[in-house]
Structure formats: C-alpha cells, structure tokens
C-alpha cells in the first residue's frame, strides 16, 4: 500500500480560498441550472475557534492503495443516510439542512465517569481542531473520501475521567419529532444508539467531527458534532450527538435492535466477510466509475488491527 503523499493534497489555505470561489461558482451554476440547492454553501459559517488556519494541523494521509481523491462537496453533503429525516439519501440531506436546529446544542457526557458534564457546543469547538482526510465505507457498498475537521474523542473522554469499571462508550443521536419527520416511522427503535469499546473510543483515529471541507458541519452530515470511526462501516459513525455515556456492559445499538440479526456491535470493515445478503468484497467510490477493492479495516489495518486479537474470528466483522 502506497500512502498518499502530503504533496498530493492541496494545502488548506489554498483550497479554502479556492473553495470559496468554486462554491460561489458552483452554487450559481446549480441555482441557474435547476434551482434545487436548498441552502447555498455561502450561508455556512466556520465554527468559532476552528476558523483560524493555525488551528488546522497538516492533513493526515489516508492509507490506501492509490491516492484518494476527495469526494465532491455536493455529494458529501447532499447524499447521506440520515433516517431521522428520510430513508431517501437526497431527501434526508435536504430535510436535515432545512430543519435541524444546531444551536443552541448541548452534549451530556456521563455514566461511569468522575466528572460528568454537560458541554455546550461552544465548549466542544474550543478543543483544538485538526483536519483528517478519512475514507468512509458504507455497509451498503459505497464509499467516499471526506476531509473532516475535529478532534480525537479521547480528549473529550479524558475531560470527564472514565472510572475503572467503564468498558464501553454509548452514544445517542438527537431524537426530536418536531424537527425529524423520519422518527414517525415506528418500525425503528429510536433514538439512534451506537457504541464502541473504550479502547476503540480512545484510539487516535476515532474522531469527534465538527466540520467538513474546512467549513462547519452541515446538518445533513450530523451537525453540530458527530462521531467518525473510519475503520468501521459508516453506520457506527452516528450523527448529531446529544449524549455520551461510559458504561460497563456492551450497549445494544440501533442496528442491532432494528436489523433482524444482520448487524452486530463490531462492524469492522472486511472484504472477506460478506453482509448476510450482499458481498463486501468491493465498493463504489462516489464520483468514480470503476469499482475498487475494499480493504481490511477500510485500509486502516496498520493502525487498528492490534485492537482485535485473533482476526480469524468473524464476529469482529459483524
């Protein structure tokens, strides 16, 4: 595997200024062409404290077979799974961007910790933010390459001081029927719950994202803060977090409860282990035309494989 060279990635100050120009151009063209862009990117504001270029560290190279090309901004923000809004990917993005109120916002961090605390979103944005270019592999068989802004979850967890009997972290997405029409679908066990083992949560790759492409997160991507765990299938990386609890027992996640035995807790990417009904051997990169092979741990095996003893145990990939 040849890692992408830092020189192949546009420095952020250049792409930021170029983006502003391109976004304006793109938005104008799109609006002129079809008038279906719900919210022009110019309306997006940089998060306080994340806007300064000093706060951004050097983009981290993504381990991959060939240089990753960042997925287009419009696809990353306009094509999402956000079932709280709609089962349709484009409709979900439009509805979320129209109606999700991301301010004021608080995140309650508690459970088995020394210092339980309610964080205001402004306090979350005061954590030093850096850019991470990660691959995102959806369990449905498609993938993207996304430049996130954020900080390792471990820094947030260290603030609240997990107790020694805390073994897992349980995350919860906002579930407000006033804002989220999809919650009316009673076949799902709302709210959206996800979980990680504590050492997975403390891993340096595990990110709390607050921004995307140098901008603050769009509601469609899970504003104002979301989880990003790049070596697991995308559904583990839950959006719009309102609650984080340190717990002793493995949490039952949304998809474990909803998926009729088709989704497990670990959900680590592995091309050799198919989903119950479809293959995971290759993937479609959004914006590219040829299928590419899926990699073990989504290409992050060097970093995370030692979290899992005995990789022949297929449970890790279910």
């Amino acid at each position: 595997m040849v890692p992408i060279r830092p020189s192949e990635i546009t420095p952020e100050h250049i792409y930021l200024s170029r983006r502003k120009f391109m976004l304006g151009l793109g938005a104008a063209a799109l609006l002129a062409a079809c008038g279906r862009l719900p919210d022009t990117p110019e309306a997006t504001v940089m998060p306080e404290g994340a806007a300064t270029s000093e706060a951004l560290s050097t983009p981290r190279p993504t381990p991959t077979q060939k240089p990753d090309i960042k997925t287009a901004f419009d696809a990353v923000t306009g094509y999402v799974n956000y079932y709280e809004f709609s089962l349709d990917k484009e409709a979900a993005a439009i509805l979320a961007n129209e109606s999700l109120q991301v301010s004021p916002w608080t995140v309650t961090v508690g459970g088995l910790v020394n210092k339980p605390r309610v964080f205001d979103i402004e306090e979350i944005l005061k954590f030093e933010q850096e850019e991470r270019v990660y691959r995102m592999r959806c369990v449905e068989g498609w993938s993207m390459v996304i430049p996130w802004l954020g900080f390792p979850l471990s820094r947030l967890l260290k603030e609240v001081e997990p107790l020694s009997n805390a073994k897992y972290v349980r995350f919860q997405t906002l579930a407000d029927p006033e804002q989220m029409p999809g919650l009316g679908d009673m076949t799902f066990p709302w709210p959206y719950i996800e979980g990680l083992r504590l050492d997975e949560a403390m891993h340096d790759l595990t990110l709390i994202a607050t921004g995307i492409y140098g901008w603050s997160l769009r509601p469609s991507n899970g504003a104002p803060l979301r989880l990003v765990v790049p070596w697991k299938y995308g559904f583990k990386s839950l959006k719009s977090i309102v609650r984080i609890d340190l717990v002793e027992e493995q949490p039952t996640t949304f998809w474990m409860a909803a998926g009729a035995g088709e989704y497990g807790f670990w959900a680590n990417v592995n091309p050799e282990v198919p989903h119950r009904r479809w293959s995971q051997a290759n993937e479609r990169r959004i914006g590219e035309t040829r299928r590419i092979p899926t990699l073990l741990f989504n290409g992050y095996a060097d970093e995370v494989a030692d979290l899992y003893p005995d990789l022949t145990n297929k449970d890790w990939f279910f």
Partner: peptide, 9 residues
Amino acid sequence: RGSYLDPIR
C-alpha cells in the same frame, strides 16, 4: 445536467 449525486445508484 449532472443533478444525480450518485448517478450509478
């Protein structure tokens, strides 16, 4: 007119 974000799917 390129209005499919994921034309294949």
